[in-house]
Design a protein around this nucleic acid. Structure first.
Length: 579
RNA sequence: GGACCUGUGGUGCAGCUCGGAGUGCACGCCGGCCUGUCAAGCCGGAGGUCGCGGGUUCAAAUCCCGUCAGGUCCGCCA
C-alpha cells in the first residue's frame, strides 16, 4: 500500500516516485491551483503539493503518490526533518474521511486532560504520545536485553492469584465455578517469584503488571508495570548489580548516555543528610547539625534533642511573606517552629573583613558566638538563607528534608539523572496500636545478620537486607534478600504478632515450599512507568501509559467501571447491596 | 475519609473580588478570495443550559449552600 514513511524522505530521495500513507495534519490552500498538504504518519510529516485540496480535511486518512523533489530556493523548512523536500505531482486517494477532531493534534497549547483521555485514540496520534509510547517500548526492550544477558529467565506468573490480606488492597475477582470464593489480582508477583527460586529457575525476571486498589496519584495507577526479578545464591550487592545494569541499559537506550554512577547511601545517612529515604541528589542543600554551636544556649526553642539546618543559597532575598509561608509549612509538617536567618555582612566597625552576621526574628536571643557558630557550621555566605529546626532528631531532619525540596527541587523530569541506592533500611517501621513492630518492607525480608542478637531486645534497631533504588527523588523500586530458613521466618512472624497457625493459613504454600530446600535468594522490582516517565521528561506516569485511568479510577474512553448485567451477576452469585 | 485548584461555543483562555442583556481574545469549524505556504494570509459566517441542583436578589457566569467531573496533595500504597 505504501513504499515509504512520511518522516523518512530526504534530499537523497529526490527523483524517486513514492507512495506514503497517513493522516492530513494540515492544509494550506492558495487558491484553486495550489495547496500544501502535510501528511503525517508515526515517523513525521511530509509536505505534499496538490492542485487544490477542497475535498480534504484534517485527519482524513490518505494515500499519496508523488515525486520527491527539492523545495524551491528559499522555501525549505528548517524546523522539519523532511523540510528540504516535498512531494510533487501528487495523486491523493482518500482512504477514509474523518470528522473534525475535538481538539487540534499539533503541539500548540494544552488540552484538558479529561478531553484527551476521552478521545485517547486521537491523543495517541500526537507527537508527544507517539514519542512516549515508543520510548517505553525502547525501555522495555533494553530491560529484556540486559536481563537476558545476565542469565535471567522470563517466567509468566498468574494474574488470578490467591488473597494474601496483607499490604496493599487487592482487586477481587469472583469465581463462577466456586460460588462465593474469590481470586485476587496480584499486587505484585512477590510470592510466585520466590517459588520459582524454590523451583530451581535460578534467575527469574518478568516485566509484570501489578494491580493495587489504592488511591491514585501522579505516580500511581491501579495497574502499573514493574521489572520484577529474583535470583538464587546471591547477596545484596549482586542483586543491586543486576538492577543497575538493567536501569543503565534502559537509560542509555532512551537517552544515549549510559549512567555509570550508582552511589550507595545508608537509610540512616539519607535521613540525616537529606531528611528523606528517597533523596534527590541533583542538588546539595544538605542538612547540617548545628547543635554543637548552641551548647548551653539561652534560647529555649533551641534546647531540643536535635538542632539541624539547611542553607538556601541566595535565599536571603526571599520575601517576608514567603518566609512566613515556610514557617507555616514547617508547622504543618509537625515541627514546633522554624527559624530563618538571613546571612548578611557583619555591621558595625571592629569586625574582621568579610565577617558575617544574621538578620532573624530570634537573632536577639542568640549570643554573638552562637550566631557566628551557626553561620560557620552551615558554611553560609552573605545573601544566603539559613533555615533551622529544633525538634526530635528524626522530625527535625524530615521537616528540613521537605523544606529542602520545597525550596530547591527542580522538576523531577529535569536532568541530570542521579540514581542512588538506599540500603540498610530498618526491618520494622514503628509499632502498631498494640505496640507490635510493623514490617517496613514485607514479612519475608531477611534481617541484617549483625543485628540478629538485638531482635528481641531492640527490634526497632534491627536493619533489614533491603534496598531501594531512587532516581531524582522518585522511588523507582525496592527489593530485599528473603528469608529462606524456617527458624528465622518464625522469629519474624512472631515479632510481627503472626501466629504459626495464622502464618500457615496465609502463606502456608510458601512456608511449606521452603521446607523442601529453598535456596538463599533475593530480588527486586522497579516501576517501569516511573522510569519511563522521568526519561521522557514527564511529571506524570499517565503520559507514558496508553490508556490510563483518572484519579477517581475511571476510564473516560470506555466508561469503565460499569454495572454488570443482572445475568452476569446471577452467574457469579453476587447481589449488589446499598446505593 | 480530608485539603486545595479548575469547570464559560468544538479547543484554550479572559470576564467572577465590586451582581446589571451571553460581553471579549486566540485556535478550530463553514463559506468566499488567494500560485510557494509551513500554527499560511485576507474577508465573512455559524456555533453557548457559563458542569448540575438549590438559595439570596428587582436582577446571578459573578454572591451563598449542595453536588458531579478533572487535577494536585494528605491519609492509603507490606
Amino acid at each position: 500500500m505504501r513504499t515509504r514513511y512520511c518522516g523518512a524522505l530526504r534530499a537523497e530521495d529526490v527523483g524517486a516516485t513514492v507512495t506514503v500513507c497517513g493522516w492530513v495534519a494540515r492544509r494550506r490552500e492558495h487558491g484553486e491551483h495550489l495547496a500544501f498538504l502535510d501528511v503525517r504518519d508515526h515517523t513525521g510529516l511530509v509536505q505534499c503539493v496538490v492542485d487544490g485540496a477542497h475535498a480534504l480535511r484534517s485527519e482524513y486518512v490518505v494515500r499519496v503518490t508523488g515525486t520527491v523533489r527539492l523545495r524551491p530556493e528559499g522555501t525549505a523548512n528548517e524546523g522539519l526533518a523532511t523540510g528540504e523536500v516535498e512531494l510533487g505531482e501528487c495523486a491523493v486517494e482518500t482512504l477514509n474521511p474523518a470528522e473534525p477532531p475535538p481538539f487540534v493534534l499539533d503541539a500548540r497549547g494544552d488540552v484538558d486532560e479529561s478531553v484527551r483521555l476521552r478521545y485517547r485514540y486521537l491523543d495517541l496520534r500526537t507527537e508527544r504520545m507517539q514519542r512516549n509510547l515508543r520510548l517505553r517500548a525502547t525501555v522495555n526492550s533494553a530491560i529484556r536485553r540486559a536481563m537476558e544477558r545476565q542469565g535471567f529467565c522470563e517466567v509468566e506468573t498468574p494474574l488470578l492469584w490467591t488473597p494474601t490480606p496483607e499490604g496493599a488492597r487487592e482487586f477481587a475477582v469472583p469465581s463462577r465455578l466456586q460460588r462465593g470464593a474469590f481470586y485476587v489480582l496480584p499486587q505484585s508477583p512477590q510470592i510466585a517469584k520466590q517459588l520459582t527460586m524454590v523451583g530451581g529457575l535460578d534467575r527469574y525476571y518478568q516485566i509484570a503488571r501489578c494491580l493495587r486498589d489504592e488511591d491514585l496519584r501522579a505516580d500511581r495507577q491501579f495497574e502499573f508495570t514493574q521489572l520484577d526479578l529474583e535470583a538464587s545464591f546471591v547477596g545484596e550487592r549482586e542483586v543491586r548489580g543486576f538492577v543497575s545494569e538493567a536501569v543503565a541499559e534502559a537509560t542509555e537506550a532512551a537517552t544515549g548516555v549510559r549512567p555509570t554512577d550508582f552511589p550507595v547511601i545508608t537509610w540512616a545517612d539519607a535521613i540525616e543528610r537529606y531528611g528523606s529515604d528517597k533523596p534527590d541528589l541533583r542538588f546539595a542543600m544538605e542538612i547540617v547539625d548545628v547543635a554543637p554551636a548552641l551548647v548551653g544556649t539561652g534560647f529555649n526553642a533551641f534546647r531540643a534533642p536535635a538542632v539541624r539546618a539547611i542553607v538556601v543559597p541566595g535565599g536571603g532575598d526571599l520575601a517576608r511573606a514567603r518566609l512566613d509561608g515556610l514557617v507555616e509549612r514547617a508547622k504543618g509538617l509537625g515541627a514546633k517552629g522554624l527559624v530563618w536567618m538571613r546571612v548578611v555582612p557583619a555591621s558595625g566597625d571592629g569586625g574582621e573583613p568579610g565577617a558575617l552576621g544574621i538578620e532573624s526574628p530570634v537573632g536577639k536571643f542568640l549570643a554573638p558566638e552562637e550566631r557566628a557558630g551557626i553561620v560557620r557550621a552551615v558554611g553560609a555566605a552573605a545573601g544566603d538563607l539559613v533555615l533551622v529546626v529544633a525538634d526530635e532528631r528524626r522530625r527535625a531532619c524530615e521537616v528540613l528534608g521537605q523544606l529542602r525540596l520545597d525550596v530547591g527541587r527542580p522538576p523531577v523530569a529535569e536532568g541530570p539523572y542521579r540514581f542512588v541506592w538506599v540500603v540498610d533500611f530498618p526491618l520494622f517501621d514503628g509499632v502498631d496500636e498494640e505496640g507490635r513492630p510493623v514490617a517496613a518492607h514485607h514479612p519475608f525480608t531477611m534481617p541484617h545478620p549483625d543485628d540478629l542478637e538485638r531482635f528481641e531486645s531492640e527490634p526497632l534497631s534491627v536493619r533489614a537486607q533491603s534496598y531501594d533504588l531512587v532516581l531524582n527523588g522518585w522511588e523507582l523500586g525496592s527489593g530485599s534478600i528473603r528469608i529462606h530458613r524456617a527458624d528465622v521466618q518464625e522469629k519474624v512472624f512472631a515479632a510481627l504478632g503472626i501466629s504459626a497457625e495464622e502464618a500457615d493459613a496465609r502463606f502456608g504454600f510458601l512456608t511449606g515450599a521452603f521446607r523442601y530446600g529453598a535456596p538463599p535468594h533475593g530480588g527486586f522490582a522497579f516501576g517501569v512507568d516511573r522510569l519511563t516517565a522521568i526519561l521522557a521528561g514527564e511529571e506524570n506516569i499517565r503520559e507514558v501509559i496508553a490508556f490510563p485511568k483518572t484519579q477517581s479510577g475511571a476510564d473516560l474512553m470506555t466508561g469503565a467501571p460499569k454495572a454488570l448485567a443482572p445475568r452476569q451477576l446471577a452467574e457469579l452469585g453476587i447481589r449488589i447491596v446499598g446505593p
